[in-house]
């Protein structure tokens, strides 16, 4: 009985570490998806002048579930799930502003707008990568270590 309880506690500690680590990973993934979406939009608008809704809908399979949920909320406005576990209010506003700015100008203006946002996302992505290396990866290591320590101490 004690052993089972101990294993559950250890797994819980490990899982907390994993969650802490995945928080940064998901954040990183979302901004990576944003960067990728900017590239796709830029290419398709420059080459085909395709409407943004079609470009995004056609390429949704490339993006993570979290990012697709943001697309539904802020671009297609088909979902009203504004609660996001991984992004701060500032980050959400940045994404919302980007989605709101799509399709408001001629091709030249549109490409400049996408480029400017893409640059912003790139900078943010770099910041996040550094943070992830420093703090994010530490989460899973600490989680494993703590779980192991608890197991050794209480066995």
């Amino acid at each position: 009985m004690k052993l089972i309880f101990l294993i559950i506690v250890c797994l819980a500690v490990f899982y907390i570490g994993y969650l802490f680590s995945s928080y940064y990973k998901k954040k990183l993934q979302i901004f990576h998806d944003l960067e990728q979406m900017c590239d796709i939009l830029e290419n398709q608008i420059r080459f085909k002048k395709e409407v943004a809704a079609k470009i995004i809908a056609d390429n949704r399979y490339l993006f993570s579930n979290e990012f697709n949920s943001l697309i539904d909320t802020y671009f297609f406005k088909t979902s009203f799930n504004e609660l996001n576990l991984y992004l701060s209010e500032k980050e959400l506003n940045l994404i919302k502003t980007f989605f709101d700015s799509i399709g408001m100008s001629d091709v030249e203006g549109e490409l400049n707008n996408i480029k400017a946002h893409s640059q912003q996302f790139k900078m943010y992505n770099l910041e996040l990568k550094t943070k992830n290396e420093k703090v994010g990866e530490l989460g899973i290591k600490l989680g494993s270590l703590c779980a192991l320590l608890i197991f050794i101490i209480f066995i």
Partner: peptide, 10 residues
């Protein structure tokens, strides 16, 4: 008409 993409009908 522009499907929220003004550039496509400019």
């Amino acid at each position: 008409v522009s499907n929220n993409s003004l550039y496509s009908i400019n």
